[in-house]
């Protein structure tokens, strides 16, 4: 089997749309609400999750035949926790201000449902390379949704993107005011709902049959 067979490519592309962990499987919502006020935070968070899912999927998949099934959750958690601590240290070293704003949410990647879900559902039963791609794809699917939400929240909530002023000054002089609701987690949930709405009206196969 070649490295990028169509089956493997599907592992990467599926989570971006029809198998999206956030909008289709409704996993990892809590952190999607918490870290999406600013686009920069969302990008860093998305990258961290991609790294953690991909590498822990790879490691667990390599160990899958040696893990006793009765203690597998503990073993998985140890590996995920190690990865998260590594990521956290890297963030602290290179993007300290973002790491401070993300605060506990980087640590909380350990409990991110997507990671546990991929480890249990995929890495425990598949070879290392597909598992790695699956982790990469699911992390990317999560990061994509985070970035879309953060884009709208930062643009309409603070009038900026990546910290740069986007909304022109003339708007504010004409009476435009930043929308305070966008800063609140409630609005992130509504935006997730909107994305699900658009996705389902675009991909009819996602709509449940009655």
């Amino acid at each position: 089997m070649s490295i990028f067979s169509s089956k493997n490519v599907k592992l990467l592309s599926g989570p971006l749309n029809l198998q999206n962990p956030v909008t289709v499987q409704i996993l990892g919502i809590c952190s999607a609400l918490a870290v999406t006020v600013k686009l920069k935070n969302a990008i860093v968070m998305g990258l961290s999750v991609i790294v953690v899912t991909a590498i822990s999927n790879l490691v667990i998949s390599m160990l899958r035949n040696y893990i006793p099934s009765r203690i597998r959750i503990i073993v998985q958690l140890v590996i995920v926790a190690t990865m998260v601590i590594l990521v956290d240290q890297v963030l602290k070293a290179f993007v300290y201000d973002v790491s401070k704003q993300l605060s506990v949410y980087v640590g909380l990647i350990i409990t991110n449902c997507i990671i546990m879900g991929r480890l249990e559902a995929f890495a425990m039963g598949n070879k290392p390379w597909p598992s790695f791609l699956d982790g990469l794809g699911n992390g990317a699917g999560y990061a994509m949704i985070l970035i879309i939400i953060a884009f709208f929240r930062e643009l309409f909530g603070s009038g900026t993107l990546m910290g740069f002023q986007i909304m022109p000054k003339a708007f504010y002089e004409a009476g435009y005011v930043n929308n305070g609701m966008m800063i609140m987690p409630a609005m992130a949930l509504i935006l997730v709902g909107c994305i699900i709405w658009f996705q389902r009206s675009y991909n009819k196969e996602l709509i449940e049959k009655e």
Partner: peptide
């Protein structure tokens, strides 16, 4: 409620 939370100063 939307007005109240989105534009508290108004």
């Amino acid at each position: 409620a939307f007005l109240f939370f989105a534009y508290p100063s108004e």
